[in-house]
Amino acid sequence: MSSVIVRIKQKQIAELIAKEKRVDGRGLSDYREIKVEQGIIERAEGSARVLLGKTEVMAGTKIGIGRPFSDTPDAGVLTVNAEFVPLASPTFEPGPPKENAIELARVVDRGIRESEAIDFKKLCIKPGEKVFVVFVDVYVLNHGGNLIDASALAALAALLNTKMLNYEIEEDEVKIKPGYTPLVVRKHPIAVTIAKINDKLIVDPSLEEEQMMDTRLTMTTDEDGNICAIQKGGSGTFTQKQVLEAAKIAREKAVEIRKKLKW
């Protein structure tokens, strides 16, 4: 789209938001339609596809066996990676993940890790030597704004249908046995992103809104209403009051979104 049209549209978005309205007809604290499909990639240990308006994100989990980190010898490992595949947006380029993809992966990772959704102690095979490694790979298939929330939801949905390998230890060797047991997921952290446009807080910014927002705040909360991860992004500022208000909105919205998941 030419930049003139973008400017006109941005002006319209700003004017509507001042009247507590949005271009796509949503209220300031409404999400776009969310669809979650779980278990769609048979070769993956767990998988899910999330549609959030025009945003489409897929997440797959793979389980491997690796060495634990030296400071946590008896805990399994979680690795979250995000790929902004070039077909998803004209602004995505092939190559190693750039800072936005890295930030997204780290925010998703923090939500899962800090909420203690996964019991890492249970993923230990032999302390100091062998542990299970849970790989979560987030694949952005279409960029329609608010990739963080869609990715966090896809990652959690994929973990919820992840099958763990059965194993036994024979003569110090790990033998994989046939069959699977489900991965235990104890908490359900949900990320809610709130953007600030013209000093108003709006939930779930679309791509157009993201392009003109001052700043955003992502808050991840668990089902007990505890906050487990926060990330501010973009080069604007928040007041203390706005931060606390955002925390309240995030908690309320998370309850709504959690209902979309099956476990």
Binding site: R110, G225, N226, I227, I230, T237, T239, A247
Partner: peptide
């Protein structure tokens, strides 16, 4: 300006604890 330019968190906090921490 009382403007917050960076805010991050990891760990678990209740709403009240978060407010206190901020």
């Amino acid at each position: 300006f009382n403007a917050i330019t960076l805010l991050q968190m990891d760990g678990i906090l209740t709403h009240e604890e978060f407010e206190k921490a901020v």
